[in-house]
């Protein structure tokens, strides 16, 4: 949680996660280099490096883009989300090897600046078939750099979660650029149909996962309650909320989470201050609402992170009448103390 900034706040699960990243990277490189050297030994080390890093970056990007919707569809995938930024930074570094070697190989040691060469050595911008595909890869690499450079919580806090999230949604632009880079470049020359088919399968899987996750979110929203004025609103029966868990409803497009714990009810804004995680899908752990994404915690009665942490979310008045739960949809200032509604037994 955001008390002070360290390069990486290591813990056991992050270390295990990173070991698996390293293991998968090594497995891929070992297979790619081994198979190429055995079956196509006239290759060069430069080409091996460029191709193995480029294809590995594409594979990692597909995995990264799958994690978000997978975690939405099934909460058991949330551990994959927990340290996704390390996977993202790893993918950027591998893409950088691909881009750096390609620029060195194809554009450096020449009669013009290599970056200028990337944009001008092929000027067929109006032709799809002859399009300068390297430009697309270069732009994608810039986006991946911006994302990797701002991946630390320092930037998350200073750019605001909303701006940070918007910046990091550019990963979809990067994905589109990379797919175009590959289809207008390598696949114009490599004759095997299996590579584009595999990329196509990857695309279809991503689309299906995102649509499935979207449908689930829409269904969840429909199960919640709409309210927009300042009157007390009936939400649900007390028994509909599980112990130490919450129920979420919507007011003016903002989600509110009502938590039930220790015979009490408290309501807070559903959005975690860290990365916008859904607090209402979290759980009360050690008396604190705990975000399912990265474990950020808030006290239910005031929406404040326990000292010494400083994050705060808005709170709401909540009451119980005849075992029915009501909420006053007007948000209070972030961190405002609100007496929990007591559940009479």
């Amino acid at each position: 949680m955001g008390l002070n900034y360290q390069l990486v706040l290591w813990n056991k699960n992050k270390k295990v996660y990173d070991r698996f990243i390293l293991l998968f990277v090594l497995l891929y490189l070992l297979l790619f280099w081994g198979i190429t050297l055995i079956t196509n030994s006239n290759t060069s080390l430069e080409t091996l490096t460029i191709r193995s890093s480029g294809t590995l970056a594409i594979l990692l990007l597909h995995i990264i883009l799958s994690i978000g919707p997978l975690a939405r569809i099934n909460k058991k995938f949330l551990p994959l989300l927990y340290n996704r930024r390390h996977l993202g930074v790893s993918m950027f570094l591998i893409a950088l090897i691909h881009g750096g070697f390609s620029i060195f190989q194809f554009h450096m040691l020449g009669d013009v600046n290599p970056i200028y060469s990337v944009f001008t050595s092929n000027l067929d911008y109006s032709s799809l078939h002859d399009f300068p595909f390297q430009v697309l890869g270069f732009l994608a690499l810039l986006i991946l750099f911006a994302m990797a450079a701002t991946s630390h919580d320092f930037w998350l806090a200073n750019l605001s979660a909303k701006t940070w999230k918007t910046l990091h949604m550019l990963v979809y632009v990067a994905y589109a650029l990379i797919v175009s880079h590959v289809f207008l470049g390598a696949f114009q020359q490599e004759t095997s149909p299996y590579m584009p088919v595999l990329m196509g399968i990857g695309f279809v899987v991503l689309v299906i996962l995102h649509i499935s996750a979207g449908i689930k979110e829409v269904k969840k929203d429909k199960q919640t309650y709409e309210a927009s004025d300042e009157d007390w609103k009936y939400v649900c029966e007390i028994d509909e909320i599980e112990e130490d868990r919450a129920k979420i409803f919507i007011v003016d497009h903002e989600r509110i989470a009502i938590f039930k714990y220790e015979n009490k009810l408290s309501a807070i804004h559903n959005v975690c201050k860290h990365q916008g995680g859904p607090l209402g899908e979290g759980k009360i752990i050690d008396g604190c609402i705990t975000c399912p994404w990265h474990g950020y915690q808030y006290l239910p009665q005031n929406g404040q992170s326990p000292p010494p942490f400083t994050e705060k979310v808005a709170t709401y008045y909540v009451k119980i009448e005849d075992k029915k739960v009501y909420v006053l949809p007007k948000p209070l200032d972030e961190g405002t103390e609100v007496s929990p509604a007591i559940i009479e037994s």
Partner: peptide, 16 residues
Amino acid sequence: VVIVFAVVFSFFQNKF
């Protein structure tokens, strides 16, 4: 998935 990607992208390259 890693094995499938590695095999497809390495084995099916044009001959050098």
